[in-house]
Design a protein around this nucleic acid. Structure first.
Lengths: 238, 238
DNA sequence: CCAAAAGTGTTTTCCGTACACCCATGC
DNA sequence: GCATGGGTGTACGGAAAACACTTTTGG
């Protein structure tokens, strides 16, 4: 964006700068990355892409790519998410913009990162021989390209925060779910056990979920009530 | 950043794209903007630059500019802050990355925004006839360029949040200050009155400030004790 | 002595946490 | 009838919120 130029520092003729570093640096390349999380088997997992070419061939990376002409940032993130999971109406939020991930491109590049939460049951991973997507447990990450560890850990921190004071979990669960399922999701992401009674009390008092009237039996044991989120869009508490 | 290319959607020969929209869009120009807040006379103010050239000549805009070759994002923000205020060791944090502010540059541009908090007493605004900087009350903003209103309101929201659970106020006050001064800063930013006793109890119990042993009398009235922040760097509570 | 600003405690309410047993169903 | 998972209430402690008067100084 042009915005305000920089006429303050005096002894810096902009023509000189232009000569030293033309387009290349003034227009550093920009990519959009999307950290996609899901919960499978009580395990927080992240979608990574197997790199089939240099740089970092053979390592794994957060899905992402360049902006298309005329495409907005969030549209690019939405498109990547759709490409990789087939999903669209899920939680997706800008995370952070990194200027220091890329140690390969001369002059560096800029990565605008987003993070998304998907219900594993609904996600359909793209099937391709190269640039293959795969879910990885956050507890056993493979070797990553482009300092992507940093992005993943930052995203996890944000996810944990969001979980505490918003209803983002809606995006990790099917339309109807039991309170135990919901609690498992929370426990998985927060990496600690929660008290069943306190958890239920809190979820119900926050008014973010409601009973459906339906029940679901799984194997032995008393059938569980099914609930749904009142709103399937981000809502912050208090 | 190159990261994972996008080999998923098949019928899109990249050579065609290149023809339709060459460098221009694949490397959309990037600027760094810095929202700089201060508190003057119980008023939250923001530093704006008077635009001396098109586009949006005569309107006011958030200070910002292009990245220099090899410069990191935070370095660019730090440099802008220094250029405009002469200050360096103040609170500065990335805010958000906007892709939709610029309705002038063909193909758009990307604005990575930061926000900073400065002590008005220490700030020395750049003196220049053109691109003149000036403090504006957030309650009486002038006509702004580039949808900058959106950025300012988002920044204010973040500032209010940060104020509640971090010590960022250190960056808005001189090294020594009275509890009443501190309370005024909080009230100004939060736009509501606070209870003196509860405020003091909280500030002291959080252990973020400490007595200096000094006192300060201003006009009539009992002299106030002077305090300082224990740490002049961002710290989150609890 | 009076105006002006600093400083100080107690009570109540609310929320988070700790904690253990009964209920409904399948096999 | 027993194993399995679902479902429930109460007591405690700490933090936030409400609320009014005394103290110290300058003029």
């Amino acid at each position: 964006m042009p915005s305000t130029p920089d006429p303050s520092r005096l002894p810096r003729p902009s023509s000189d700068l232009r000569k030293l570093a033309p387009q290349k640096d003034a227009q550093r390349p920009t990519a959009v990355l999307v950290v996609i999380y899901t919960v499978i088997d009580g395990d927080l997992r992240v979608l990574l892409i197997h790199r089939s070419a240099e740089p970092y061939r053979g390592l794994w990376a957060i899905p992402g790519g360049r902006l298309l002409p005329g495409e907005s940032l969030v549209d690019a993130a939405t498109r990547k998410l759709m490409d990789e999971t087939g999903l669209e109406d899920v939680f997706l939020e800008q995370l952070y913009t990194f200027g220091d991930l890329d140690d390969v491109t001369p002059g560096g590049s800029i990565a605008v990162t987003y993070f998304a939460l998907v219900d594993n049951e609904r996600a359909r991973l793209a099937e391709r021989p190269d640039w293959r997507p795969e879910w990885f447990s956050m507890r056993e990450l493979p070797k990553l390209a482009f300092r992507n560890e940093e992005v993943l850990h930052y995203a996890l921190e944000r996810l944990r925060n969001k979980l505490e004071y918003t209803n983002v979990a809606y995006s990790l669960l099917p339309g109807r779910f039991t309170l135990t399922q919901l609690q498992r999701v929370y426990e998985t992401i927060l990496a600690r056990l929660l008290d069943k009674r306190n958890f239920r009390k809190r979820m119900l008092s926050l008014q973010i979920i409601q009973e459906t009237g339906e029940r679901q039996a799984e194997g032995a044991g008393r059938p569980a009530r099914l609930y749904r989120f009142r709103r399937r869009e981000p809502v912050a508490f208090s």
